[in-house]
Design a protein around this nucleic acid. Structure first.
Length: 487
RNA sequence: CGGGGCGUAGCGCAGCCCGGUAGCGCUCUUGCUUUGGGAGCAAGAAGUCGCCGGUUCAAAUCCGGCCGCCCCGACCA
């Protein structure tokens, strides 16, 4: 395993793939565009999932599960929705195989009467159920989330960032009033912001999408947008106000207190395993993955060092004491007592896997009653007293969490610009980063800017800005919007 | 769907031009020595050379067809 990780400066894409490989997060699969999520990657996803799930429960949501297969007719109920997804759907047409001359082949006699779509998202199948569940204002709101896999038949894929099958959560809520639905949409966006910043240590900007970037079938799409190390933007999560579009398409009404039957208001919101890609490209370095302590499957690893059996016994006994102290504090800790690798190998491996803190303990340390502490994020090494180690590590993990956020925040700020003329805009966009500029609000202008610079409008900021003139047309603009080249 | 590249051991590759018993590095297995930043020695294991057909005494190598994957673009979370 003397292979090295490509330097970020040499080839950022290759670096990204190398980090995933060396951290053992995922493998390519035999099926194009799909990935195998390995135990390290899945443990990370479980920690993300658990934190998000708690936040969903704390805001009154409950989990449910809807089917993988959606009748084809459901998808076509909502005109814009079908428009958005039709080009990337896997379709099940047959139910059986049979032996043929080249092995198994599809049995033509097993063709389905109604073809099934593998869900690209679940609005339609869920709203079909909601129709049955909702009669009265007393049945509202419905606040449901599901953890699931979805399939979108993508042309080009990249591990975690865009795979044909991915894991995500999708929240689907139903409300009696527009105000309440909008409030829900904004609340869940704030949940995503909190999760991204507090757990992933990934700074994000909140905003709404322009019409062209909006979710198919939504009235308004809210998003959190983040800036990666290579100065490209990544959409990290979306929350949609769906208006009454799906209620109308699936005929979902409730009887209000005034006796009138009214269409229900809807939201949906989701984040996916794409966040893992964002996490990698926010913190990791040329030595491999860097994980924030709150999400790291292993927060602290102990690497024992010995020269002979007697030392091994002494060192492991000492390590055991450290292990128990940290374990009792609820720290996720691992003792790497493997015999067949030497310490240098282990150091490199745990670094590649992103373990936030490493403790090295050898005969010298036992003699002096101290340990060597190494931080993954800064690569700093320090000899510290064995006494009070637990408390020190607890606070150090917090420090690392904050420091990762602060560093990322500074990087984003350093690469965020405001420009007022198109020439400067083009130059800035070429160098990458977030660029705020005035836009006249027209889709044609947005399209032209995209064609000429590859930059898209990532979001319209939530807080109101100063009016001005569009950098492209000179027409009036309400406020600056955020441009970037994006993943 | 267009442009480019590549399919030979688990991984990375050489061999192909000029046909003649399939090779290198890493990995893996066993043993011994090592262990404070990716260890050393020794012995071993592992391949339908992407698939189908053709030429030939003989094909990884030459010819024809097909398939797959990766990268770059158009489309998307």
């Amino acid at each position: 395993m003397a292979q090295n990780i490509t330097n970020r400066d040499d080839d950022y894409s290759q670096w990204y793939l190398d980090v995933i490989k060396h951290a053992k997060l995922a493998d390519y699969s035999p099926v194009r565009g799909c990935m195998v999520i390995r135990p390290n990657g899945y443990a990370l996803w479980e920690n993300m999932r658990d934190a998000l799930d708690r936040m969903f429960k704390d805001t009154g949501h409950e989990n449910a599960y809807f089917p993988l297969f959606i009748p084809k007719s459901f998808l076509s109920r909502e005109a814009e929705h079908v428009e958005g997804f039709a080009k990337e759907c896997a379709v099940v047409t047959h139910s059986r195989l049979k032996s043929g001359k080249d092995g198994l082949e599809v049995d033509p006699e097993s063709e389905l009467d109604e073809q099934l779509i593998v869900r690209p998202t679940s609005e339609t199948i869920i709203w079909n159920s909601y129709r049955d569940w909702i009669q009265s204002y007393r049945d509202l709101p419905i606040l449901i989330n599901q953890w699931a896999n979805v399939v979108r038949w993508e042309m080009r894929t990249r591990l975690f960032l865009r795979t044909m099958e991915f894991l995500w959560q999708e929240g689907h809520t139903a409300h009696a009033s527009k105000e309440e639905a909008v409030e829900e949409t904004e609340q869940m966006l704030e949940v995503y912001r909190t999760f991204a910043e507090d757990f992933m240590a990934m700074p994000v900007i909140k905003g709404t999408k322009t019409e062209s970037e909006r979710f198919a079938g939504a009235v308004e799409t809210y998003c959190i947008e983040s800036l990666m190390q290579d100065n490209k933007a990544l959409q990290a999560g979306t929350s949609h106000f769906l208006g009454q579009n799906f209620a109308k398409a699936f005929d979902v009404t409730y009887q209000d207190t005034d006796g009138q039957h009214k269409h229900v208001w809807a939201t949906s919101w989701g984040v996916s395993t794409r966040l893992i890609g964002g996490l990698i490209m926010t913190h990791s370095d040329d030595n491999g993955l860097v994980l924030p302590p709150k999400l790291a499957p292993t927060q602290v690893v102990i690497v024992p060092i010995w020269k002979n059996d007697e030392q091994k016994r002494e060192v492991l006994e000492y390590c055991d004491g450290v292990y128990r102290e940290l374990d009792e504090l609820g720290i996720r800790i691992e003792l790497d007592d493997r015999d067949q690798q030497n310490p240098g190998y282990k150091f490199a491996q745990h670094e590649a896997e992103g373990v936030p803190l490493r403790i090295a303990i050898g005969p010298r340390d036992i003699e002096n009653n101290n340990v060597e502490l190494a931080r993954r994020d800064t690569l700093d090494k320090n000899i510290v007293d064995r006494e009070g180690l637990g408390k020190r590590i607890e606070s150090l993990l917090e420090t690392i969490q904050e420091s990762l956020y602060d560093q990322a925040k500074k990087r984003v700020e350093d690469n965020t610009y405001e420009v007022d003329d198109y020439e400067t805009f083009k130059k800035r966009i070429k160098e990458g980063g977030f660029v705020y500029a005035h836009w006249d609000g027209r889709a044609e202008t947005e399209e032209k800017i995209k064609d000429e610079t590859k930059a898209t409008i990532r979001l319209i900021p939530l807080e109101e800005g100063e009016p001005g003139k569009c950098i492209y047309t000179g027409d009036p603009s309400d406020q600056k919007v955020l441009f970037a080249r994006a993943y």
